[in-house]
Design a protein around this nucleic acid. Structure first.
Length: 503
RNA sequence: GCCCCGUUGGUCUAGCGGUUAUGACGCCGCCCUCUCAAGGCGGAGAUCGCCGGUUCGAAUCCGGUACGGGGUACCA
């Protein structure tokens, strides 16, 4: 359980996968699972498969599917095989593979490894309650395990539709979890389970191992929530070996801890906090979000005793050792996520920042489609002013609004105006206007020199008091990007107009 | 009820039998400074869930126990 994880067979290359079901919005826990599985595959030079498990028509949606693909691409977690890109083991949407599952189920039935069970929901519940009351595990009791053809016919005659249950071999189940080490489930605690519903639809319990076997998956990294279904899947693999589904091997399993939210609960799809799209809308960088998510349960090994918590995907791939994954759940801390994201923004070239800002300014209606050369130039010139001031791209919009907004829509924050543009503030603004009116050269250095001379030397003001009124009058807020640079970008006429308007 | 997993400052995390228990986020203070940030420096904050055991020595190994989480579906 330390160091490199051996592949199941000798020199068998790693094949990992991510296989969400398309329900609701993509969430952060999902992204973390995808990231770890992806990083594992990439670290070992293996393949990464992206499959969609849409076997539950009542919960799955096309919209959710589209979002999933979109978000994986946005994150930059590329897949070698799977949905949208195809591959040798397709199709990769389970809804398109129903014939495969029907065939596998039939073969399990034929081999006597599964059976039809006719229990009604009420009967099952009754017996479950009884077992519970007796202090025993509450799974299926195997009542219909060995029905005779006559008994089956009798149930059929009653009009009962059978489910197909897999016949669990009676033995203890031990597997060596990639992140948790050896885990054992006693024979009594893993009962026969349903693999095909009464209406003929296969369940996850069947489709997931079937596809993993058929797609040659060697390492299954998934959420802790399905840890306890692992013995069933292992049993199924052993059955597959008998009926010739897959290559007869069983993958290794690793169960990743939860990402929890504000309480201590697993972050669910319904928590707004967990919505991946929300992070994109706010201006999280994929590299920032992924970096933070990586930190939830994993860390880059220290080099010379120095721990590094801001890193690139490439660095993660290089160092990603599954044995370093922490088994205990981690709470999603938005403040830290933002801090890490801010670090990544600062790591970007300014020009890159300017480009990435475009969609946010468009969404705010400050830049229009198609993007004009002027807008591009202004954004490029303005990006340096906010580059180290934002933690999320979206924050740049408010900071730079004064530059992009047309003069009719420009508004000054009332509270800030009240404080900074009182009588003396207006006098300061007037002096600033006068000093700037005939300035020879409209550039940052000249503007600064002129204002310092007029306001600090001329009026004898402290810098803080001198520039406050100008800042509020021109940018609309007492908090702004650096003043002189801002004025240069705004231009002389607009600057003067705003100063005048403030008087 | 039964089964499984987990437990190091508020949060994340390092640690693999001997450390003044690591770092990050957050918080507080100072410096820088035209505001806000960024950056720099410093600080507070952990009897490593608890009880026993092994050992010269335990956050690290073992056993209990408490608490938290998950499963126990014709969801995944």
């Amino acid at each position: 359980m330390t160091d490199t994880v051996p592949a199941p067979g000798p020199s068998k290359p790693v094949v990992a996968r991510f296989c969400p079901s398309p329900t609701g919005n993509p969430h952060v826990g999902m992204a973390r699972t995808a990231l770890f599985s992806w990083a594992f595959a990439r670290h070992h030079g293996g393949r990464f498969v992206f499959r969609i498990e849409d076997t539950d028509a009542s919960r799955d949606s096309q919209e959710s599917y589209d979002l999933l693909v979109d978000v994986m691409r946005w994150l930059g977690l590329d897949w070698d095989e799977g949905v949208e890109v195809g591959g040798p083991n397709g199709p990769y949407r389970q809804s398109e593979r129903m014939d495969v599952y029907a065939d596998v189920a039939q073969r399990l039935l034929d081999a006597g490894l599964a059976y039809k069970a006719y229990d009604s929901a009420e009967e099952l519940e009754e017996r479950r309650d009884a077992a519970r009351a007796a202090g025993k595990p509450s799974g299926y009791d195997g009542l219909h395990r060995d029905l005779t053809p006559e008994q089956q016919a009798a149930y059929e005659a009653e009009g009962r539709k059978p489910v197909i249950r897999f016949k669990m071999p009676e033995k203890d189940w031990t597997f060596d979890d990639l992140v948790r080490g050896p885990i054992t489930f006693g024979a009594d605690n893993v009962q026969d389970f349903v693999i095909v519903r009464a209406n003929g639809q296969p369940l996850y319990t069947l489709t997931n191992p079937t596809d993993d076997a058929l797609m040659g998956i060697t390492h299954v990294l998934r959420g802790e929530d399905i840890l306890s279904s692992t013995p069933r899947q292992i049993a199924l693999y052993e059955a597959f070996a008998q009926i010739g589904v897959g290559d007869g091997s069983t993958p290794r399993f690793g169960h990743l801890p939860y990402v929890t939210g504000a309480g201590n609960r697993k972050l669910s799809k319904r928590d707004p906090e967990s919505n991946l799209l929300g992070y994109r809308e706010q201006g999280f960088l994929p590299e920032g979000l992924l970096n933070y998510l990586a930190l939830l349960g994993w860390s880059l090994p220290a080099v010379d005793g120095v721990e590094k918590d801001v890193f690139s995907l490439a660095e993660m791939v290089e160092a990603f050792e599954i044995s370093r994954v922490n088994p205990n759940p981690g709470r999603f801390d938005l403040a830290k996520c933002e801090a890490i994201n801010g670090d990544h923004i600062r790591l970007l070239d300014v020009e890159d920042v300017a480009q990435r800002l475009v969609p946010y300014f468009q969404a705010a209606g400050l830049v229009h489609e198609p993007v004009s050369d002027e807008a591009t130039a202004l954004l490029s010139a303005a990006a340096p002013l906010v580059h180290e001031r934002i933690a999320k791209l979206g924050e740049a919009v408010d900071m730079l609004r004064f530059l992009f907004i047309d003069d009719e829509h420009f508004v000054v924050d009332e509270a800030d105006a009240a404080k900074n543009l009182d009588e003396s503030g207006r006098a300061t603004a007037r002096a600033a206007r006068d000093a700037l009116t005939d300035l020879e050269s409209w550039d940052t250095a000249s503007i600064e020199a002129a204002l310092r001379s007029a306001l600090i030397e001329g009026l004898g003001l402290k810098p803080r008091l001198a520039f406050g009124p100008v800042r509020v009058a021109v940018t609309g807020s007492r908090i702004s990007p650096p003043l002189f640079e801002s004025l240069e970008l705004l231009g002389r006429s607009r600057t003067l107009a705003r100063l005048s308007a403030a008087l």
